[in-house]
């Protein structure tokens, strides 16, 4: 009986430790625990599972259970307990994050998924003010424009505007300095006559307007601008 406690207490304490490690992982960002403490919680979570398995082994042997049943219970400890600890850490982290309100979580979740690019897409959507079917030209669907050049993503963010990769005939042309996965390359990389250029200010979240100015990429190259061009037709 005393031997049970030798394993039960370590099983409980190590489980709490790994739940906390997973909590940190889910609360902060993927790979946080390894980056901070050089401990991979996913690979090492089998430790509390193993200790619990030893405890279960002694308990089931004392209870006189059949060998296949004991083996299955041990496998459950080794396989499911690590997943269970991860799930508990996940739910705890989600609860702690939820306590900060949907605004905080939305910003954090969107930032994790798309960086800050979603803020720019939200700005474009609010600027064009929803006339259904208005055409917005976006950069080509290739790197470095991972998000701003993504037809599917831009179509979703800019709905009900229609997204196209053709500048000709578009009511708006997106300016993107996104450099994700490849070197910086300003788009549009060609000159065009414009009624207005709107440059997105990342600090205030608003657009700074330059009316009656044609688009010439050479002039803007060094400023890494993001924004919109209203072309002169």
């Amino acid at each position: 009986m005393r031997r049970n406690w030798y394993f039960l207490l370590p099983a409980v304490f190590t489980s709490i430790f790994w739940i906390y490690a997973f909590y940190l992982e889910f609360f902060n960002y993927p790979n946080y625990v390894f980056a901070r403490f050089h401990l991979d919680p996913y690979r090492t979570a089998v430790i509390p599972g193993l200790i619990t398995a030893i405890y279960v082994f002694f308990r089931t042997r004392a209870a006189g259970l059949k060998t296949p049943v004991v083996i299955l219970l041990l496998l459950f400890c080794l396989v499911s307990i690590p997943s269970g600890l991860s799930a508990m850490g996940n739910v705890l982290a989600r609860t702690a994050l939820a306590a900060r309100g949907p605004g905080y979580i939305t910003a954090k979740a969107m930032d994790t998924a798309y960086g800050s690019d979603y803020k720019f897409l939200d700005f474009v959507q609010s600027y064009i003010k929803n006339p259904p079917g208005v055409k917005v030209a976006i950069p080509p669907m290739s790197l470095p424009w991972r998000h701003t050049g993504d037809t599917y993503m831009a179509a979703s963010f800019l709905y009900p505007a229609v997204v196209t990769h053709m500048a000709t005939g578009s009511a708006f042309i997106m300016i993107s300095s996104e450099a994700d996965g490849a070197g910086y390359r300003l788009w549009p990389d060609f000159s065009l006559p414009a009624k207005k250029i709107i440059i997105y200010d990342w600090v205030s979240g608003r657009g700074v307007e330059y009316p009656g100015r044609n688009w010439n990429p050479g002039e803007w190259q060094a400023r890494h601008p993001w924004g919109l061009i209203i072309p002169r037709t």
Binding site: A98, P102, Y114, A155
Partner: peptide
């Protein structure tokens, strides 16, 4: 335990690419 996860989900936006571009869209 699952219901706690359910309640926390009320605070999270849809961010997964396939959902944003297809199911949720």
């Amino acid at each position: 335990f699952i219901l706690i996860g359910e309640i926390t989900s009320c605070f999270y936006p849809v961010t997964d690419w396939d959902a944003v571009t297809l199911y949720d869209f």
